[in-house]
Design a protein around this nucleic acid. Structure first.
Lengths: 147, 147
DNA sequence: ATTAAAATATGATATTTATCATCTTCATTT
DNA sequence: AAATGAAGATGATAAATATCATATTTTAAT
């Protein structure tokens, strides 16, 4: 309905890493177990984020995925765009090719208004910003209450 | 990003039929040609709408798909729900199973606001309401300007 | 009655997305 | 240096969605 599954996984995983704090390396198996996600698939997704430098990784023993201050300050929008592509926020809601402000589809203005809004939210929320609410038990990343 | 292709096709086709006016029967080939959509697939989609009584049809020579006042007054939301299912507006944006107001994911409130807005628009816009703007050249259903 | 033109029903194929599995590369510990 | 445990790369499979194709049923005109 909104993001692809890959994108959902990417968001969960980065928020999860953020929650673990600065520079804490976590292996894919642990992330997948805690978030209840298929490990190998999540791995692929994270590798895309690594390529986009939205997540860091180190190989070898005691390696894993992690974030530093730099990654923690990036917006959630960057995660979304890295996985679902740059123009999921531009594509016409009715699938009309050259739908635009000048030549809109019947839903263009309605959809655009609200989309711009969510775009704004995602571009203004940093990965780090989700952590405190999660730690306070205000929001959750999985069915299970705590990890 | 929002609706499935099937749903996009359904919306286009009903708006197209609305534009043709009351009781005007149009065959699938003509609809598909005018909207630039794959005819056989569109056919399948329209048959779902027929089953939901959102579109009427008559078989045989001079048959086709059409709308009456009754169908014209139904909301766009009904089209969407018939094709993409009842709960595309409820499913958690991050894919968390029991995400809810009490136990929200980190994006719950933002996404909910967005979706509620779209839901409101769709439930308040009738199929017929899209016609005049299309006829006035304010909005469009396909690349081609007129049909 | 026959025929033609339409929807309806159904199944096969293709494409996209998601998942599973395996092998390679690399860094760290011993 | 060797062994281990992690990410990285790649390919195979499965599932969901979209598309293509065909045979059947129905209606209306002739």
């Amino acid at each position: 309905m909104f993001f692809s599954k890959s994108c959902e996984y990417a968001l969960k995983a980065t928020m999860y890493l953020a929650k673990q704090g600065d520079n804490k390396r976590v292996g894919i198996k642990v992330i997948a177990r805690d978030l209840n996600l298929p490990a190998d698939y999540l791995n692929k997704v994270l590798q895309i984020l690594v390529k986009h430098k939205l997540v860091l990784s180190s190989k070898g023993r005691y390696g894993g995925f992690y974030l530093t201050k730099n990654e923690l300050n990036k917006s959630l929008l960057k995660i979304v765009k890295a996985i679902d592509g740059k123009d999921i926020f531009n594509r016409c809601g009715m699938g009309i090719e050259n739908c635009s402000g000048e030549k809109p589809c019947p839903l263009h203005n309605d959809i655009k208004a609200y989309r711009d809004n969510i775009l704004f939210v995602l571009s203004n929320k940093s990965v780090a910003s989700t952590t405190s609410q999660i730690n306070n038990g205000v929001t959750f990343l999985s069915k299970k209450v705590q990890m």
